[in-house]
């Protein structure tokens, strides 16, 4: 039912979910993920098709090492952009921040559409392939996901992660406790951009083509849905949300014309039935207790 190509899309979905999760873990509702995704993708598309030093062959092949370089560069460019923009937008809060980041997404989309070297509406095509089939992409995306997940897990025990959690609970109090809230929020924002930029660079090769439509407002909302449905209190939430919601429209194909109606219903009913998301901290604790009889205390 799920082929490796779809699995790659699911893993990319999980990565984008994590990119939305990271600022949210510091209490910042940023919807800028598609902008950074688009920046990373455009960079990879440009580099691999225009810069022959990277070693694209006439037959459409591409060295894996060059791909890795692009992933790094895509993440770095997105991160730099986030560093510049973040200083400005992170002064905003709540819904204002959300809408400022949507504005950023639209500005980046229109810029990619209008710049003289990004191919206009058609975009950049014939992007060379580092792998002969989807399994190479699968492995790369999985490694990226495991790496990002590991960082998110490590954050829980690091001062940075604790500071993020403190800001999420109460920004004012966190400031009083001596946490440099601006720096912490900016770090989370840049991390989010790096994840999105890297994912975009990989996606550009996987999709064979890249255009301005890839980073749009729609993506902002779908990726937010990954986090909300999966759960925003643990990093595994957006991962599960991204995997499931990317697969869902494909798995619903047998129902025919009403598949998007059903997909919409899932999005409506998901948060209503599970307001804490599929993966809540309680669920993880129960999972952690499972099979160890010493922990039988009721909270």
């Amino acid at each position: 039912m799920i082929d490796n190509g779809l699995l790659v899309q699911m893993l990319l979905g999980a990565l984008l979910g994590l990119s939305v999760y990271l600022p949210l873990a510091a209490g910042q509702l940023s919807l800028a993920t598609p902008a950074f995704y688009a920046v990373g993708g455009t960079l990879a598309a440009l580099l691999s098709t225009r810069w022959s030093v990277l070693g694209a062959t006439a037959a459409g092949g591409f060295p894996v090492l060059s791909l890795l370089l692009e992933l790094v560069l895509g993440g770095a460019l997105a991160g730099t952009l986030a560093l510049l923009v973040g200083r400005l937008v992170l002064r905003l809060r709540g819904i204002y921040l959300a809408i400022a980041t949507i504005a950023l997404v639209e500005i980046v989309r229109v810029a990619i559409l209008n710049l003289p070297f990004t191919g206009g509406a058609i975009g950049i095509f014939s992007i060379p392939q580092p792998f002969t089939d989807a399994s190479g992409y699968l492995l790369t995306a999985l490694i990226l996901l495991v790496l990002t997940g590991w960082i998110c897990q490590r954050l829980d025990t690091m001062p940075l992660g604790r500071a993020m959690a403190a800001i999420r609970d109460d920004e004012l109090a966190a400031g009083c406790m001596g946490i440099d809230t601006t720096r912490v929020k900016l770090t989370a924002f840049v991390l989010s951009a790096v994840v999105a930029g890297t994912s975009g660079a990989l996606a550009a090769h996987f999709l064979n083509t890249w255009n301005a439509r890839q980073g749009s407002f729609d993506v902002s909302i779908t990726t937010l849905a990954f986090v909300i449905l999966g759960g925003s209190r643990a990093w595994l939430g957006p991962v599960v949300g991204g995997l499931l919601l990317t697969a869902l429209p494909e798995l619903l194909r047998p129902v025919g014309d009403v598949r998007l109606v059903l997909f919409g219903l899932v999005i409506v009913l998901g948060p209503v039935l599970a307001p804490r998301g599929l993966v809540s901290p309680e669920l993880l604790e129960r999972l952690g207790r499972w099979g160890s009889p010493t922990r039988e205390q009721k909270p």
Binding site: L236, L287, W290
Partner: peptide, 12 residues
């Protein structure tokens, strides 16, 4: 609880 949670994350 955070210990349990970490174990839960690992398991999931």
């Amino acid at each position: 609880r955070s210990d349990e949670r970490r174990r839960g994350v690992l398991r999931l």
